[in-house]
Design a protein around this nucleic acid. Structure first.
Lengths: 348, 348
DNA sequence: AATTAGCACTCGTGCTAAGTGAGTGCTAAC
DNA sequence: GTTAGCACTCACTTAGCACGAGTGCTAATT
C-alpha cells in the first residue's frame, strides 16, 4: 500500500478541514467540499488505508477522522503550502519597530504581544544571550551620602547595577580611583577566575576601603547568576481557553501550570536554539502536559553567538503555515530592528 | 426587623459553610452542623428575614442561600475572626528572606509566588515607588571600542542604563570630565526643567562631543517614562481555574483578559495605595470582569513616601480571614527584609 | 481492476419524561 | 415564639428514543 497522490490529497483535505473546524472530518464532507472527482465511497476506502498507515485516526468508531501526530508531521514536512503574510499582517508585525525599543524588555514584551495577537496562540520569547561569562566593565560611582553604585557589564552588554551602603562614602576622586583599580583587576575575567591572589592584591589596593570587597564580590556573583538566567517574556496565555481542545478545564489547568514554570519553557527554548526553526508535534514534546500541543520555535540571531528564541504553543491542530510565516517575519523584523538601532545610535 | 444575635449567628454559619463548600447552604444543614439549639424551621424563618434585609440570596427558588456582597461586607467588617498564621505558614512566608533578595524584581517575583501558593488565589504586587521624578545621578562610562554607557539614577534609586553608540569613543579622562559636566547640569532636575538654556550651555561644554546630547536626552526621556511605569509581578493566575465559580470557561477567560492588562491592575493598586488594607467585594469593584471577585490589597511602606502594594484576586467566596493574615504577615516581612538589607550592607 | 451506489450498523447528540432529593414557605399545633 | 409537618419548587439524573453523520462491506457498474 503506497502513499499515492490521491491519498496525499485526501490527507491534506482532512488536515485543512480539521484545522479549520476542529471537528472530525467525514468522507462525504471531503467529497462535497473538495472537488477531487471521486465519490465518498472511494474516499472512505482511501481513508481506511490512511488510518492503517497511521496518518489519521478515529476518536471513536463511526465518527470522522482526525489527523494523528504522524499525519501532521507529514503535512509539515512535505504538504504544507508556504503562506505569504498579508499586507495588514506585515504592517502589524512591523509596528513593533515604530515604538521605543531602546529597552530590550519592552521590545520583547511587545513582540510577544504582537505574535500572540496575530496567531491567537500563546507566545513566549527569550532575550538575546551571548557571551555573558566575562566581565567587560566594572565601575564604581557615587550615589548619595550613604551609598555608592556598582555597575557591572558583561561581554554581551548584559548589565546590572548594585547599590552598596557604606558608613562613609569616599569623595568623588577616590571613588574614581577605586573604580579604575576594580576595572583593571576584573576586566576580561570570568567569575571562576577570581582567586585568592587577585583578592589579596585588591584588598591591599583598596586600603581603608577594603570593606567594599565583600559586597563587590556578592554583586559579581549575583550578576553572573542573573546573566545565566535567561529572561523570558510571555503573552496570550488566555488564548488557550478559546480552543475547544481545552474546554476541559483540567487540561487547560495542567497546561497553565506548565506555562507558569519558566524553567521548563526556558529549557525548551534553549534546546531549540541551534535550529532556525523547530516544530514539535504532540507526542514529540517531552513535557507531559504538552503532549496535546504543538510547539514551534524560531531563533533570531543578532550576531554569531548572540541569540534568542521565540516559541509558540497551541493545539496540535494549529495553523502551522500561518505560525511559521509569522515567526519567520518576526525574526527578520527583530534582526532588522537591532541593526537599525545600532546604526541610528551611530549617527546620534 | 432587627439584626439580632441569632440572625448574626446564622449569617456567620452560612458564610463559613459557603466559603468552605461553594454550595448553597440550606436550613437543615445549619441545624445539623452548627449547634445553635434551634430547629431548621426557625432557621428558615430567620433566613427569610436575612434575605429580605439583603444579606443573603437564593441562586434560584427552592435552593439554599448564598451570601450577597452586602453579607460578605458585614462579615468582613464585623463578624470575621482574626486568624493567626500557623507556624508552618509563618515559616513558609519568611522563606522569602532566606533567598538572595538583593535584586528587587526577584524579591517581588518570589513574594507573589509564596502568597499565591499559601492562599491559592491570584497574587499581584507592585514594586516600591517613591520620589522618582528627579535625577539623582547621571554618569557616563566607557563601555567598549564603539560605545559608552550612560547610567541614570532617580531620587528613589530607580535606575536605568543606556548604551550610546559613537563613531569614536573619547579617552577615559575625557569621558570622566563629560560625566562630571552632565552630573552637575542635571542633578536634582526633573525632566520638565530641562530647557533650552541648559541645553545650549551643555552643548557648548560638550564641544566636539555635542553629538552626544541627542541620545542623552532620549535616554533621559525613556528613563523618566520607565520610572513612571510601575513594575508589576503576578503569580497564580492558573489557580483561578480551580474554583467552581470559574468552571464556566467564558467567565474564566474574561478574568484572564483583565489580568493580562497590566494597566488595569496597576491603577487598581495605585488607587488603594493610601489604605493599609483595602477590601473590595464583588460589585464594589469598578472593573466589569471582576464583579464576581473580591480584591484585597495591602500596602507596604519602606519609607514615608516609598510604597508598594500587594493585591489578591479571588472569588467573592474567598477565605477573607486567611488572606488578610497572610497579607499582613507578608507586609511585615517585606518591610523587615528591606530593613535588614540596609543594615547588612552597612556592615559589609 | 478500480470505482461507486446502496445498505446495515455504530455511536455521539439532543430531546423528552419520569424520578429523586434538597430545599423552601406556610400552617397549625405546641 | 418555636416547631413539626406538608405541599410545592426546581435543579439534576437517568432512561428511552429518534436523528444524523459517519463507517465498512458487498454487489453492481465502468
Amino acid at each position: 500500500m503506497s502513499l499515492n497522490d490521491r491519498k496525499v490529497q485526501i490527507l491534506q483535505a482532512i488536515i485543512n478541514d480539521y484545522i479549520e473546524t476542529a471537528e472530525p472530518v467525514g468522507s462525504r464532507t471531503i467529497a462535497k467540499k473538495y472537488n477531487l472527482g471521486i465519490s465518498s465511497a472511494t474516499i472512505r476506502n482511501e481513508m481506511s488505508d490512511l488510518e492503517e498507515m497511521g496518518f489519521i485516526m478515529q476518536p471513536h468508531a463511526s465518527s470522522g477522522r482526525i489527523p494523528s501526530d504522524l499525519g501532521y508531521r507529514l503535512y509539515v514536512d512535505h504538504l504544507m503550502q508556504k503562506r505569504e503574510l498579508s499586507f495588514d499582517e506585515q504592517k502589524y508585525l512591523q509596528s513593533v519597530i515604530s515604538r521605543d525599543i531602546s529597552q530590550i524588555d519592552y521590545l520583547m514584551e511587545e513582540t510577544a504581544k504582537i505574535i500572540s495577537a496575530l496567531t491567537s496562540y500563546t507566545t513566549f520569547i527569550s532575550e538575546p544571550v551571548g557571551q555573558r561569562a566575562r566581565i567587560k566593565q566594572i565601575r564604581l560611582l557615587p550615589l548619595d551620602m550613604t551609598s555608592v553604585l556598582l555597575v557591572i557589564v558583561t561581554e554581551d552588554n548584559f548589565m546590572k547595577n548594585h547599590v552598596i551602603k557604606m558608613g562613609t562614602v569616599p569623595d568623588e576622586d577616590t571613588i574614581f580611583e577605586i573604580s579604575m583599580y576594580l576595572n583593571r583587576a576584573f576586566q576580561g575575567c570570568a567569575l571562576q577566575q577570581i582567586d585568592q591572589t587577585i583578592l589579596s592584591i585588591l584588598q591591599l589596593e583598596l586600603g581603608e576601603y577594603k570593606g567594599l570587597l565583600k559586597p563587590i564580590l556578592n554583586a559579581l556573583k549575583s550578576t553572573m547568576e542573573a546573566a545565566e538566567k535567561v529572561q523570558l517574556h510571555m503573552s496570550g496565555t488566555k488564548n488557550i481557553l478559546a480552543f475547544p481542545e481545552f474546554s476541559d478545564i483540567s487540561k487547560a489547568k495542567s497546561l497553565f501550570q506548565t506555562l507558569e514554570e519558566k524553567d521548563v519553557l526556558t529549557s525548551m527554548l534553549e534546546e531549540s536554539k541551534c535550529n532556525d526553526l523547530q516544530i514539535l508535534i504532540g507526542s514529540e514534546n517531552t513535557v507531559q502536559s504538552m503532549k496535546d500541543c504543538s510547539v514551534i520555535t524560531a531563533t533570531y540571531k543578532l550576531s554569531d553567538d548572540t541569540r534568542g528564541t521565540i516559541g509558540i504553543v497551541g493545539p496540535t491542530r494549529m495553523d502551522y503555515s500561518q505560525v511559521i510565516s509569522v515567526l519567520n517575519g518576526m525574526v527578520k523584523n527583530i534582526e532588522k530592528v537591532f541593526k537599525n538601532l545600532t546604526d541610528n545610535n551611530k549617527d546620534g
